[in-house]
Every structure is written in C-alpha cells, then in structure tokens.
Design a protein around this nucleic acid. Sequence first.
DNA 1: GCCAACGTTGGC
DNA 2: GCCAACGTTGGC
Length: 137
Amino acid sequence: MTTQYWLVKSEPDTYSWDQFVRDGRTDWTGVRNNAARLHLKAMRPGDEVLYYHSNEGKAVVGVARVTKAAFPDTTADETGWVAVELTPVAPLAKPIGLAQIKADAVLQKMELVRQSRLSVSPVRPAEFKRVLRLGKA
DNA sequence: GCCAACGTTGGC
DNA sequence: GCCAACGTTGGC
C-alpha cells in the first residue's frame, strides 16, 4: 500500500513536540470524535504525519511516522475509541504557521483549514510535500 | 426525526 | 475574552 499522509493536532501545553521527541514514541490517545476516529483507523504503519501545535504556536512543527496501526484506547471510558502509535521523525527547520498555510495556494485547501476543529485529518501528497519543502532551512 | 440548547475547540 | 464552527444531547 502506498504511504498515506495525515496531520495531528496537539496543544503544546498538553503534549508538545519536544515532549514527544523526549519520549521517543507515544500512543496517540484521547481522540473522541468520530471523524477523527475513522482517520485513526485508516492509518497504516509507515504513514507520515504532520505534527501541528494548536493554540500556542499554531504551526506545523515536525514530522512523525505511524509505527502501530489502530488499537483500543485504554484511556477511554467507553469501548470503541482507538489510538495509534506515533514516532517522531524530524522537526521542521522552519515551522509552517497557520497564516502561511492560509496564504499558500496549495496549502489553503488543507483539511486543517477547511475543518479547523478536527484533531486528526488527512493530508494530500502535494500538501505534504509542500510543507516539507517550505519547512526546509 | 427535527431542532434548540449547550459544550468544546481553536483562531483571532 | 469573544465568537464561529461543529458535535452532541434531549425535548417534543
């Protein structure tokens, strides 16, 4: 299967990219939205994930990889919610801010912009490549 | 099954 | 702090 691309959001006050790097890997738990759950379930090991800081930061700050497909989220009160395992790959040399995304002809179509409240969203290959290119030093 | 009320997220 | 967008809940 070809690599799919995603974006996950986290408030840096809650779980920052730096903490993620220190941990070396993390279980992406706590998703309690059905659309986001469907995206988690569609993730496959090897898929690449943009890591976005919401609220404070409002920028894509790094790239991660899916290292374990969806499994039950044990932090949930009800059954049926899932988590995936993510592992950090590399930070962006230059974080890509939301304002820059909205000003870019390619990136302004991202689900991140279209559905701003969704915490896990798909990313098109062209969008992923453009973020990487703009994020290079 | 509709819709008003309410809660949450997240940008500004 | 405000508000728009969206999801969920519950009365009818």
